[in-house]
Design a protein around this nucleic acid. Structure first.
Lengths: 221, 221
DNA sequence: CCCTGTTTCAAACGGTTGTTTCGAACGGAG
DNA sequence: CTCCGTTCGAAACAACCGTTTGAAACAGGG
């Protein structure tokens, strides 16, 4: 009778398989078509369950969207930040600028270039940035800002003498290039023969590291 | 009775004011809400005309979208390319790298930072990139690629010794930073106090020019 | 067995979508 | 004047939307 509250977890022993299948279907379809273009009936058809299940388990279409998003958000953020921290530690206190950039660039790009989950997540983020269905600024607060802050710290520790204002701007420049690579690879008709070669993982990393290292050093003044 | 063909222009003397009002309404609403989230009734209400007008003048909602897009596309592209060419000519054959970058950066950012038409266009572009309602790759072919090509030429002429492969990659790096600035300013909850200062037009231009000039020179090798 | 709470289902709900219909209004040409 | 092609508007169209309903199916404890 009474639908499960959003916060309540199903009893571990119980099946609750539909709930999981719905979350997976939501991840696929919302990423491919966007929130509005994905109908509840398409979701439940993909998850092979009844239409009412969405309202029963998540209280509505938006509830499913939010829950699907929430799960992935913290995981990806922690993975990213851990990658940055690891790169800093590996290179020790004397982390060269190039090594730090290389580590972060690879860590950022790698999960997005596979065919499976990574690309979908980036599409979800792009869409959520363009028209939010979470509380306003959630993505910025929970994902963009923490990663940006960690990277800024790493950059300042790898490049002494970089004031925090310049550091923030340089991080912007680096992140912009990374995001752009991902977006170009995800855009439907964006990649044509020649350009696709320019965006191969290894070459892209090499270029961004070289370009950005020089750019950052020019901001030391 | 018979609806006007998409290609046919209305007789110059005739009023045909509704058509124009619809195109303006489409520009506003599609940019703010996206294609799917904008209903035909919202469009015709904004344009103060009947629902049937959309089908009469444009053959459907998609027809209106395409026509609205087509008008702006060529105009903005030619304006951009003309800006690049002008910057090249002004600085003469010996255009310094910094001047070329400064000219292009300003030309790219300026129209997007006003309150009126510029920001709307960029939102339209972002949306169209994410889920196209034009023929696939139209935006890339008609807008992104020509501008990129012009900028690549300008860069190679301002920086002798830059092979075409490196030039393409450097253009990517510069454009990425510009796009990122625009997207950050357009994202609903992205800008908070401190960051907004980092993205003021003059400061952003200065940073991007300095950062990119050094990055490009590092690619000369 | 019955009772209880959870989960799933087919069916229907009211509302909105894009599009169509058809008649009225308009404005020059014959 | 009539005629004709163009433009417009109120109303209706079928299709789909997200959500609700009420009952069936299922489990486990008394």
């Amino acid at each position: 009778m009474m639908p499960a509250r959003a916060l309540a977890q199903p009893v571990p022993g119980s099946p609750a398989r539909t709930r999981e299948r719905l979350l997976e279907a939501a991840e696929r379809l919302f990423a491919e078509r966007g929130f509005r273009a994905t109908s509840v009936r398409a979701l439940t058809s993909e998850a092979r369950c009844n239409v009412a299940s969405v309202n029963y388990h998540f209280g509505g279409k938006e509830g499913l969207y939010r829950e699907m998003f929430r799960r992935r958000l913290v995981a990806l953020r922690e993975q990213r930040i851990a990658g940055i921290r690891r790169a800093m530690d590996e290179a020790g206190g004397s982390a060269s600028l190039e090594l730090t950039l290389q580590a972060f660039t690879t860590a950022f790009l790698e999960p997005h270039l596979d065919q499976s989950g990574g690309r979908r997540l980036m599409r979800l983020f792009s869409r959520e940035l363009l028209e939010p269905h979470l509380r306003p600024g959630t993505l910025q607060r929970e994902m963009v800002e923490p990663v940006r802050r960690a990277l800024t710290e790493a950059l300042q520790s790898a490049c002494r003498g970089l004031d925090s204002r310049s550091a923030r701007r340089c991080v912007h420049s680096v992140v912009a290039q990374l995001v752009h690579v991902v977006q170009m690879r995800n855009a439907p008709g964006a990649m044509r023969d020649k350009e696709l070669r320019d965006f191969s993982l290894a070459d892209a990393v090499d270029h961004i590291v070289r370009f950005s290292a020089a750019g950052i050093r020019a901001c030391l003044s």
